[in-house]
């Protein structure tokens, strides 16, 4: 083991001596931030459910008289939906303990309230009504039931890796194909006398390969990482930025690109390269 590592370092030394200064280059970590909140892991979901149930059990009784004035229609609707609990009758045996009713709530349990709805659920409708309801539902009807959009998109179902609409709950990173390997877009410093700042280099390079219809936010002009690419004798400085809108449209038709999550990058990128930049990528 020791001999091997010694050999490797000697190889590195020889390379460093044999060649001139390594070329400076700028690598862009272009990320699409999550559009929706992160998926809750199973354990967290269970814990939150448990805490929520405890909290509901220890909640005070709902002061109905404060929110619904007696004798009003609203109060009547509320009463129809929320039936009174079984009263404590001294002549009856209760095998599971006597009810303790205060303000029409059994204080041994959590209070479950139903609020009047402006629409009918699908299972409450008659078949004839159902067809009618589907026809009459309009986008701007305020009384309609609000159905949130699905967390999985069309791009997820088709497994379209080039789409910006895939895996909305994760951070995606732009990767491009370089020969047979996948890399993060890398732009070498032009060999002219005048130097270009690393972030401008990354910006110009991105526009050159992906078109100018990209709205992006560069967090900092300072590099966040350096990778010594001994193979190409390159020093890669990493610049982080976020894509906000627009689309990456490859200017060269033959160029392939993908939007990948951290786990997918692990399988696509070179192993050594990935291990070097792993900590720069977001888990979420």
């Amino acid at each position: 083991m020791r001999g091997l590592s010694g050999n490797l370092s000697r190889v590195g030394l020889v390379r460093a001596y044999s060649t001139a200064n390594p070329t400076v280059s700028s690598t862009l970590i272009l990320s699409r931030n999550p559009v929706i909140t992160a998926d809750v892991p199973k354990f967290e979901a269970q814990y939150y459910k448990y805490q929520n149930e405890l909290w509901r059990r220890l909640m005070w009784t709902f002061p109905k008289w404060f929110y619904f004035r007696e004798g009003t229609l609203a109060e009547q609707r509320f009463r129809q939906l929320n039936k009174d609990p079984v009263a404590d009758n001294p002549n009856i045996e209760f095998p599971r303990g006597r009810p303790q009713i205060r303000h029409k709530r059994d204080r041994r349990f959590k209070q479950e309230l139903k609020l009047p709805k402006t629409y009918k659920e699908a299972d409450e409708l008659e078949p004839a009504e159902l067809e009618q309801a589907q026809d009459t539902i309009t986008e701007d009807d305020l009384a309609r039931k609000i159905v949130p959009n699905s967390r999985t998109t069309k791009a997820d179902q088709e497994n379209d890796l080039t789409s910006l609409e895939r895996k909305l709950s994760r951070t995606l990173y732009l990767t491009i194909q370089n020969g047979s390997t996948w890399i993060l877009p890398n732009f070498p410093e032009p060999s002219s006398e005048q130097v270009t700042a690393l972030h401008t280099l990354a910006e110009e390079g991105l526009y050159k390969i992906g078109g100018e219809k990209i709205n992006y936010f560069n967090v900092s002009n300072t590099p966040c990482h350096v990778y010594n690419n001994s193979k190409d004798n390159k020093k890669e400085y990493f610049i982080k930025s976020h894509i906000l809108s627009g689309d990456f449209q490859p200017q060269d038709k033959s160029m392939k690109f993908l939007w990948l999550t951290k786990e997918e990058l692990k399988t696509h990128l070179d192993k050594e390269y990935y291990q070097d930049i792993e900590h720069l990528l977001s888990e979420i």
Binding site: I36, T37, P148, N149, R151, T153, L168
Partner: peptide
């Protein structure tokens, strides 16, 4: 990030 995506997930 919101709990559910907007009608148009990406501009």
């Amino acid at each position: 990030p919101t709990d559910f995506p907007p009608n148009q997930p990406w501009v």
